[in-house]
Design a protein around this nucleic acid. Structure first.
Length: 591
RNA sequence: GGGGGCGUGGUGAAGUUGGUUAUCACGCCGGCCUGUCAAGCCGGAGCCCGCGGGUUCGAGUCCCGUCGUCCCCGCCA
């Protein structure tokens, strides 16, 4: 038996010299036994190649069934005239086998390894290792590796240093729910898994590690979405003596290298910018999808004198009337009713729809409006015959958000081939809650544009924060950080954090800021989201090797799992009675 | 926590207003075939319809509950 398990990959056979001997290793994709001759497609990580075999060459008892792992020794030959397969990259050649060795048999498969067939995702995850043999998944993981390698190279070229920060850290009850790990040595205490390396990277700046980056695994114990998992990867970056320009240029360079590695073509730089205020007014969203128009218009001027109570009331209350032109759409009455219901569920009092017909409106509210008003709306929305117009009146912020959501739902993006990046800048410092409470719109280490404004008029204060948006998806965010402990203290105060709480939770960090902290700024790019968009996946699960289901379960390994009582004792833990009872009940129903 | 979709042999699907042995394709098993390539041909096995309860003479089909999965809202500083 030869020591050589493989000399050549399948894809290389296309260019291999006719007559040369090769040794291939891979899996039987499909076999076609013609009686006097056997063909099979051998798949390895590079692709497929056809192997021709005289049945006499097959060892007695050996079989070539799907997904058997085989070693093939043979000679490269051109396919006979008329038998070439133009659908196959290696379709002009084949390997005439002198020996086929079954290295490893396969049980009957739970699903066929074939990209053309749909397979339930739960089964794919249960047998993820077979899923990897499907060319699409293999290509996704490869794209991810290529992109991260390119970004790492790019950052290295720019003299950034990769530093690993701890994943067992102290819990900070701000923001998302922490994933917790019980401590054995300090019973009763818990580590938190980091939601981001935020504080640690700022400490690196204090320490003079000028240019830092890290592909950081981050954890947030919140509910799942197609673009959210408990654990995810961020390309985390921070630099000292930086302002937002330096950050954005660096991110553009690194991300663009990642895009080029996958797409073969870098996006055109610089990435356009838009303030948060502009994004909200034009698109009703802080992550606008720029692959299509359908922008929001302010129609308040048109209706300043209107008799229609639905509009005049909103304007009188300090709100406004906003509208979008959905374009030529043929909506049934029930479909329009659904849109109205949706608008209401988003907080709108109502939704006015109108079709542009013969220069005027076909709409339930047409009779309440003057001809001049209807024509002016048509003009402002640039509507033409057959276009559907949607109008929302109310508090401006709400009207914008409702239309922004409808815009995304009704818009028809051009597909994932087109990449529309945009920077969103100048975010508000705080989100204002209905009860008047404030929470940081970004995180509490973000530098306000003006301290005075933040203290005296926090609701209208803007921050030196910016998001990177791609095709309507938030790819990441960053900010210029606070490097002055006095300012940082003021922000905590404005958030209503008491001095005692501030000292106990952030005292060590505030102390660090007192030792000559350089101005610094940074960013974090969501690697999973970036890759999902680049490969055209509808979920980040398709670019994560071993993702979890919506309920946080790994169908393959069975995590999370109960642990032995001994382990619990070592940790000084016990389950709450109601949890024990629920587990016992579940146990019973399983029996 | 809430709203919605889905759950039929190993896989993907069909199943008409509830009505006799639940359909198809791929896969699987056996056989034939020297140029196939999502091979073809012949034969065969395999599902009582996620689970529980109910309505009915009768349920995959209707109702309730439950579990799983996916999408969305909340949540994600």
């Amino acid at each position: 038996m030869s020591e050589i398990l493989r000399t050549t990959y399948a894809a290389e056979i296309a260019d291999a010299e006719t007559g040369s001997e090769v040794v291939l290793g891979g899996w039987v994709s499909r076999s076609r036994d013609m009686g006097g001759v056997i063909f099979f497609d051998l798949r390895d990580p590079s692709g497929l190649v056809q192997v021709v075999l005289d049945p006499a060459e097959l060892p007695v008892g050996a079989e070539l069934k799907m997904e058997y792992c085989v070693k093939v020794t043979g000679r490269v030959q051109a396919r006979p005239e008329g038998t070439q397969n133009k659908d196959l990259a290696t379709g002009l050649v084949e390997v005439n086998a002198s020996d086929v060795e079954v290295l490893s048999a396969s049980d009957v498969l739970p699903f066929m390894v074939d990209d053309r067939l749909n397979v339930d995702e739960l089964i794919r995850l249960r047998y993820r290792y077979l899923d990897f043999r499907r060319p699409t998944m293999a290509a996704n993981l490869k794209a991810r590796a290529k992109a991260t390698a390119a970004m790492r190279r790019s950052l290295d070229d720019m003299s950034f240093m990769e530093v690993e920060t701890p994943t067992l850290i102290a819990s900070t009850p701000e923001g998302a729910r922490d994933m917790l790990v019980p401590s054995r040595l300090q019973q009763g205490s818990f580590y938190a898994l980091p939601q981001s390396p935020q504080i640690f990277k700022q400490l690196l700046m204090v320490g003079g590690i000028d240019r830092y980056f890290q592909f950081a695994r981050c954890y947030r114990d919140e509910d799942f979405r197609s673009d959210r998992q408990l654990e995810f990867t961020q390309l985390d970056i921070e630099g000292s003596f930086w302002d937002e320009e330096a950050v954005m240029q660096t991110i553009e360079t690194a991300v663009s290298a990642g895009v080029a590695a996958v797409r073969g073509e870098a996006p055109s730089l610089p990435i356009p910018r838009m303030t948060w205020t502009e994004a909200m007014h034009r698109f009703g969203s802080d992550k606008p999808d720029l692959r299509f128009g359908m922008e929001i218009n302010d129609l308040s001027g048109v209706f300043s004198e209107t008799e229609f109570k639905g509009f005049s009331g909103a304007i009188a209350d300090g709100g406004s009337v906003r509208g979008i032109n959905v374009g030529p759409r043929d909506f049934s009455r029930s479909a329009l009713d659904k849109l109205i219901d949706q608008a209401k569920s988003l907080g709108a009092k109502g939704l006015v729809w109108a079709f542009c017909e013969e220069g005027t409106w076909r709409s339930p509210v047409a009779k309440f409006l003057s001809d001049g008003e209807k024509e002016a709306v048509i003009a402002q929305l640039e509507a033409v015959e057959g276009d559907l117009m949607l109008i929302v009146a109310g508090p401006t912020r709400n009207a914008l958000e409702v239309l922004g959501q409808l815009r995304v739902d009704l818009g028809q993006p051009t597909g994932h081939e087109e990449l529309r990046f945009v920077w969103i800048t100048q975010f508000p410092v705080f989100d204002v809650h209905e009860d008047g409470g404030l929470s940081p719109a970004h995180h509490p280490f973000t530098q306000p544009e003006s301290i005075d404004q933040m203290i005296n008029d926090p609701e209208n204060a803007f921050a030196r924060a910016y998001d990177l948006v791609l095709n309507g998806s938030e790819l990441g965010s960053g900010s210029v950080r606070i490097h002055d402990p006095v300012v940082q203290t003021q922000v905590f105060d404005t958030l209503g954090i008491s001095p005692e709480e501030r000292e106990s939770r952030f005292g060590w960090f505030l102390e660090a800021l007192r030792y000559g902290t350089p101005p610094h700024a940074g960013f974090a790019v969501g690697v999973d989201r970036l890759l999902a968009i680049l490969v055209g996946a509808s979920s980040i699960r398709d670019v994560i090797a071993f993702p979890k289901t919506q309920r946080g379960i790994d169908p393959l390994s069975g995590s999370p799992s109960l642990v032995d009582n001994d382990q619990m004792i070592e940790l000084g833990l016990d389950l709450r009675p109601e949890v024990k009872a629920a587990l016992a009940e579940k146990e019973d129903s399983n029996d």
